[in-house]
């Protein structure tokens, strides 16, 4: 039963993420990206990590992708404005990042086949029973990265305000 649900979700996730880059219409791409996010959230549920699943939907599908759609609709792109790009630097960085991604994927697949060295499972790390264990870890062991992320967000907010208010 589990393997059946997993296969359906995995196929949906992979097909949708391929469709993201195959679509000519940016709104359709964004929609497929949302479908990918939601199927990933379902996969988290299957791994007994409901908190992660719900947060995935709230943050990625509910907030970030709405802003994506918002911007796409505001810009109102026409078909001829995003034809094949011919800048060489862009192509170089594109290939570079594809290689980096490939290395990452190979590592993940290796862990999947030969087993991970870490003793923490997903359900331990995300605490299915409640949010308390997660909060415990976040405010003790991982306090520094947590605070660092909050500073990063603050910098982004200040930057956005500065850019928006430049002309005032």
């Amino acid at each position: 039963m589990e393997i059946l649900i997993f296969s359906i979700l995995a196929i949906v996730a992979v097909v949708c993420s391929i469709m993201v880059i195959c679509q000519k219409n940016p709104v359709a791409s964004a929609l497929f990206l949302i479908a990918t996010m939601v199927s990933l959230a379902m996969l988290f549920l299957l791994l007994n990590a409901p908190f992660l699943a719900v947060i995935q939907i709230i943050v990625y599908a509910g907030a970030i992708m709405v802003l994506f759609l918002f911007v796409i609709m505001l810009l109102n792109l026409r078909r001829d404005e995003f034809g094949p790009e011919k800048r060489r630097a862009q192509r170089f960085f594109g290939i570079l990042f594809v290689f980096l991604l490939l290395i990452g994927m190979v590592t993940v697949i290796e862990v999947g086949i030969f087993g991970s060295k870490s003793t923490e499972t997903v359900s331990e790390a995300t605490a299915p029973a409640g949010v308390e264990p997660l909060a415990q870890l976040l405010f003790t062991k991982y306090l520094f990265p947590f605070e660092l992320a909050s500073v990063l967000l603050l910098v982004a907010i200040v930057g956005a305000v500065v850019m928006a208010k430049r002309r005032l």
């Binding site: 409901p50 908190f51 719900v54 939907i57 509910g62």
Partner: peptide, 13 residues
């Protein structure tokens, strides 16, 4: 056990 978060997530969709 995360009813409220579930509601927030679904309503944000």
């Amino acid at each position: 056990n995360m009813g409220i978060l579930y509601i927030l997530a679904v309503s944000s969709l």
